[in-house]
Design a protein around this nucleic acid. Structure first.
Lengths: 209, 209
DNA sequence: ACACCTAACTAACAACTGTTATGTAATTGG
DNA sequence: CCAATTACATAACAGTTGTTAGTTAGGTGT
């Protein structure tokens, strides 16, 4: 609540698509088709209104995209913060990392069209749109860095590992699942456990059992 | 050589951009800007010709894209096959995997605009363009699967690992580097060693040293 | 010298793009 | 009950897109 200039949005009127309706539809289309293939007329048609009417809610197409990008990061961030925060106070850094991996992956693959749209179209939008999304992004990245730093301070990490590089490798790997994940071949949750196992212990068998 | 209907391409005439010139320029633009933002007029301008002239070499824009996608896979595939093939005959499967990881990453980040363009725009092109690229893709994937299977048959892999999923996780992670790799922070080769270490052994410190 | 081929150019097309100005029905506060 | 606001529709704009048709300049083989 207390967002932008909201507060007086009385949702009494029936059958109104509204700003949120447009955003929801647009996020789904962006996730499915990418940035370049989704025009305002496609968004409008999918929302059940006409293209010009979108300008009642948004000043430009890029304003829609920025809103979706921001909401996408906030959705994963919230999901991740909640998952880590819900752990018992004495939880180790390794278990916290596992929880974060699971939360990130579930946000992408199960929960939020906004988060998956963000990953999908971020590399396709004009640069100033990317820039507008950067602050939100930095905050999420900082949360990951602090998680990985906790692991490092516990002495659990190998030496010579760069936290920033580790975070880029991990999040990049998780985001890449969007292009091949198939829920019929296993849940996002099970997949996240595999990622945690591989990332933490590798794929090779230990010397002695 | 002996491609499509080639053979009589006498490159005597000077200052001709030609089919290859258009492809080279288009691959670079696609890698830099993505699929949707690169028009035929942009390609033509960057190549030093006019938009209509492109249709002397190609029947449509998508024909260019298909050619680039195919060449992109062939470039990584060749790079990877050469790197693995150059190893001594008694090389173990683990070292072969390390070599493949290095070859894939170097093709993306150092060598080929076609390979990086492929990764960048594959998710943005119309579906039938993707489909046209699938056979080439499958061949490359099969090469990876055979590499990982060798590792499994040596008993080096943990049980319960699905080869296909492993390949998707690994290649996905490598491809994701395109969005953040910065040569000023370290070479592609050094990065590939980090990936091999993490993927094979994980990031956690061993119990006893 | 002639015809031919290559590789380009020019100019236009229909469709689609984001965007704007204006009009309108329905709801709501005073 | 009237005025204002909300949430749309309509219609048009200038620009860009992929694509096509017709033309032209320069090199090649006979």
């Amino acid at each position: 609540m207390a967002d932008t200039t909201a507060g007086e949005v009385s949702e009494t009127s029936r059958s109104a698509v509204g700003r949120k309706g447009v955003l929801d539809v647009a996020a789904r289309l962006f996730r499915e088709q990418g940035y370049g293939s989704v025009s305002l007329r496609k968004i409008a048609a999918a929302a059940g209104i006409k293209a010009g009417s979108i300008y009642y809610h948004f000043g430009s197409k890029d304003e829609i995209v920025v809103a979706i990008l921001d909401a996408g990061i906030r959705a994963v961030h919230d999901n991740m913060r909640k998952a880590v925060g819900a752990l018992p106070a004495d939880t180790g850094a390794e278990a916290a990392l596992r929880a974060a991996i699971g939360a990130h992956l579930r946000a992408l693959l199960d929960v939020s069209d906004y988060s998956s749209a963000n990953v999908r179209i971020f590399g396709q939008v004009p640069q100033y749109v990317r820039d507008a999304n950067l602050p939100t992004r930095r905050a999420y990245e900082a949360e990951w860095d602090s998680l990985l730093s906790r692991l490092q301070q516990d002495g659990a990490l190998k030496r010579n590992v760069d936290i920033r590089r580790l975070r880029l490798m991990l999040i990049g790997a998780l985001n890449a699942t969007l292009e091949w994940f198939d829920p019929e071949r296993g849940s996002a949750d099970a997949l996240s456990r595999t990622y945690a196992d591989v990332f933490l212990h590798g794929i090779l068998q230990e010397k002695e059992t």
